[in-house]
Design a protein around this nucleic acid. Structure first.
Lengths: 254, 254
DNA sequence: CCTTGACCTTTACGTTGCGTAAACGTTTAT
DNA sequence: ATAAACGTTTACGCAACGTAAAGGTCAAGG
């Protein structure tokens, strides 16, 4: 199949100007020029453009791309595998940023306050990456995995103080469940408060809170006998009531 | 807390030059200038910088950001919710590109050939964007409700048979944890099987499974004493091991 | 056949978001 | 007290195109 500038542009999602620019800098030259001076691209060029876009997606400069694909030992399959890895890293970074947004929303809505440092989690991935690569292995060897785990937990913000607060909140929820259950209505103010506190309590252990996950957890409370038994200790039917209160609070109840 | 240029730069991951540039164009002015002419940033500026970085992550131009945050009706919480949505879209785009890479690898290694059009799937997200804006919300609302309804129905309608299967699976997991823990490696085949079975078990109660939620649950296993006690009954450190196995299985391990 | 509109060409200047360098003052630690 | 590490402003540079101008080509419809 052969393509003119516009056709290749539409197919690949880049602009015509971009293709001409890539020709100009020698990154992607058309297979041939037809009698009217039009650029005509062929199969090889289509595949190369794909490669270029993969690299561009990873924020590699056009100059570097030019160097890479012109290296004599360039292995396309190997490059694609590297792409996959890097794209995965990028997605992880996005996940972190999303978690930060969620945390920020929660902190605005009266959850636990955030430290300034936390507010930029995910943005600084590049710096961490280097550190990890440079020192990560050594540190792990030196202090052992356990220390790293503990340090991670700490980094996630779980201080001794936080842990105690969380335990206390857990007990409070128990009392609230009793009170709310007495109203008999999962939409009552008491039930709302119960769900709210439950969310707050969750925020201590969940780095990334989402309605979806919260609702899922509520459902699991009923399905999982351990939870069921735990909340049933308080009042019979307490687990189901808690679930309904949470679903109601989240506004996903029908 | 107050910050100088360097301190804010290090914390947020941007360069000093960037902060000075943002001051220059009026995007982020320091709270005050001290007696030596140094820029001093305060709490408000930290939060604003975070907002700016969120927008920048979504490829909004600095000029547009300036307009947005200066709008009189600017609602920070609402903006954050929009960020979440957009970030999710971006992640979906990344997923598509990753699928394209995988497909390309497969086609090179003798799988079925790809059509040229397929080679650029994921890159052209922009066209879809408009559609999304118009109909996305409605569809999502509808779809979301349906999923939840179905999930409720599923729980309420779980047959005795299913319930027994689930219980049995729960016991199996217990045994698997023992076995896997003996290997000492959260990446071992035994550990993988453990995580896999755990997911399977989850599927009984969770209609909408997601990696995120699964990983979050794994973390909660460690943080929540009820879970911790339950799995610790088997072997000391069992809870942490289960978490690590799950995170490893999900590929979100660090 | 002729016109229209969508495509193609080259040349050239403009823009964004900083990086980098120069030339110089301030603060901190040894 | 001296160096290192920070701070300041001014100014030029750069990547990766967008955009406009001035013009040639091509397929389709009247």
């Amino acid at each position: 199949m052969e393509y003119t500038v516009k056709k290749l542009a539409v197919m690949s999602g880049v602009s015509g100007r971009t293709l001409r620019y890539y020709d100009q800098i020698g990154l992607l030259k058309p297979a041939r020029i037809n009698s009217s001076g039009y650029r005509i691209y062929g199969q090889k060029e289509v595949d190369l453009l794909q490669q270029i876009l993969f690299y561009r997606e990873l924020e590699v400069s056009l100059e570097d791309i030019l160097d890479i694909i012109n290296q004599p030992g360039f292995d396309r399959s190997k490059a694609l595998l590297t792409h996959l890895e890097k794209l995965k890293e990028k997605r992880t970074r996005l996940d972190k940023i999303m978690a930060t947004v969620e945390k920020t929303i929660a902190s605005i809505e009266g959850g636990k306050p955030m430290q300034d440092k936390e507010k930029f989690e995910g943005f600084k991935e590049k710096l961490i990456e280097d550190n990890e690569k440079q020192y990560g292995e050594e540190i792990r060897e030196k202090y052992g995995d356990e220390t790293i785990d503990a340090s991670n937990a700490k980094l996630r913000g779980m201080s001794q103080e936080d842990y105690e607060k969380m335990t206390k909140l857990g007990e409070e929820i128990f009392v609230l469940l009793d009170k709310a259950y007495a109203t008999g209505d999962p939409a009552s103010p008491e039930a709302r408060k119960l769900a709210e506190k439950h969310k707050e309590w969750l925020m201590y252990s969940w780095t990334s809170y989402s309605k979806e996950a919260h609702a899922g957890l509520a459902e699991m409370y009923v399905a999982d006998e351990r939870f069921a038994a735990y909340y049933e200790k308080s009042v019979t039917g307490g687990t189901k009531f808690l679930r309904d209160a949470i679903l109601n609070y989240l506004g996903v109840d029908e």
